[in-house]
Computed example of a mutant assay.
Amino acid sequence: MRQAGRRIRGLALSCHLGPTLAVTSLTAALAIGLGAGTRLWVLMASAVLTGQLSVGWSNDWIDAERDLAIDRRSKPIVAGLIGARAVRTAAFVAAALCVPLSLATGWRAGGVHLLAVAAAWAYNVRLKSTSWSWAPYALSFGLLPAFVALALPGHPWPAGWAIAAAGLLGVGAHLANVLPDLEDDRTTGVRGLAHRLGRTRASLLAPAALLGATALIVLGPVGRPIEGAWAGLVVAGAIAASGAMIALTRQHSRLPFYLTIAVAAVDVVLLVRVGPLLVW
């Protein structure tokens, strides 16, 4: 019984539970806000959840040897809570479940979501160690509004500014996510965009991308910004700036990444307020 509890805890920690639940919840909130029925938004949330689980588990499984080399005890595999083989199996099971759940939302939406998940896997497998490390985040996040919109009746395509805003949010999330691990990553040969930019420039670029995402949502739709849009931009800017200050002064803090999720929540609220202007 105790061993089963350790395995469950190991799986929960190795799937990157916080970001997994955040992306799932924000996608579901956007779907509900845009008028998706209960069955549809539950399907979308299930597809995103399994996709995110597969990405999180594959990340820890693929990185296991690097994490063991530097004794990164914060990782469940290194801490002995669960084995790499079990995490690998969980990643493939989640990926297998993600396929029918995604396609159940419609072949257009499902195909877009599976492309987003494939891009995230490409990051884990190879691209995280290259100067293109930002690209899978930009693509995966950028496709989420398309996934939600294409699943709606009539299969509308989201406006270009919505895709660009989500992509910028992904770039900001990527930079904020890797900042606490820059030194450990360099030791194991990982040299993504943030590593090449250096801590200072990456810490400043992350909030700039987040603020750019919110600005696109406020200014992108035709006509005057919706009521409360400027307030949302100010709030998002304050959160992003706080994340930058923390990243520059507390090098191993993960708070900037969680502040990125807060900016994403503000953006989802604004997207829901925009409503019909989001799609065409």
Rank of each mutant, 00 (worst) to 15 (best):
L40N: 05
A95M: 08
L68D: 15
A116E: 01
G110M: 08
S54E: 02
A45F: 03
T50Q: 05
R191S: 14
A22N: 10
A90F: 01
S131D: 13
P19V: 06
D67W: 01
G160W: 15
A122L: 15
A116G: 11
A45L: 02
R108H: 09
N124H: 07
L271F: 03
R254E: 14
A165W: 11
A91L: 04
G172P: 09
T214A: 11
G37L: 02
R254H: 13
L144R: 02
L150M: 07
Q3H: 13
S14W: 00
I8Y: 10
P19M: 07
A96N: 00
N177S: 14
A64H: 05
T27N: 12
L211H: 13
Y137H: 11
A135Q: 01
H174T: 03
L248M: 11
R85C: 08
V234W: 00
R66H: 07
A162N: 11
Y258Q: 14
A28K: 06
A22S: 15
T214C: 09
K75Q: 11
L30Y: 01
S102A: 15
A94F: 00
G106Y: 08
A215C: 06
P221Y: 13
S102H: 04
L168F: 15
R191C: 09
L17S: 12
L233S: 03
A166D: 11
D63F: 02
D71G: 10
T24L: 07
V48L: 02
V99S: 00
A86D: 13
G160Q: 10
R108A: 14
S203F: 10
A149M: 14
L49E: 05
V235E: 05
S58H: 13
G275T: 07
L211R: 11
L152T: 13
G5R: 08
R273L: 06
W280H: 13
L114A: 02
L144M: 15
Y137N: 05
A262W: 00
Q251W: 12
G172C: 08
R201P: 04
Q3G: 09
S46R: 04
A45D: 07
P207D: 04
I226M: 05
G232S: 13
T130P: 07
G80S: 01
L169R: 08
L101A: 08
L175I: 04
R199L: 14
R108M: 13
P276M: 06
S253V: 11
L26E: 04
N124I: 05
T27A: 12
L68K: 15
V78H: 09
L103E: 02
